[in-house]
């Protein structure tokens, strides 16, 4: 599944994939693949990306199920 939250947050900060990659300490292709949903990052990399984007793991990587929304 594509990670649009991550992509939107990056665009919101007017940050390129290359810049985010540099801040997270990975290659641009890794960021591209995470956004495209083709690569599942480790928690360590998720944290590095969240730090670079100035947000939490919940903001970027948490997907709510329909039943969870109803319960709330």
């Amino acid at each position: 599944m594509r990670n649009l939250k991550m992509k939107f947050r990056r665009i919101e900060l007017e940050m390129s994939q290359a810049e985010l990659a540099r801040r997270a300490g990975v290659t641009r292709q890794t960021i591209g693949m995470i956004e495209a949903g083709e690569f599942n990052p480790s928690i360590k990399l998720c944290v590095a990306i969240c730090r670079a984007l100035g947000c939490t793991l919940n903001d970027i990587f948490w997907e709510e199920h329909e039943d969870e929304k109803v319960e709330k």
Partner: peptide
């Protein structure tokens, strides 16, 4: 080549 930013990476909002 792999590090080139794809054209759609800053679009699609």
């Amino acid at each position: 080549k792999l590090e080139e930013e794809p054209e759609d990476s800053a679009e699609e909002q």
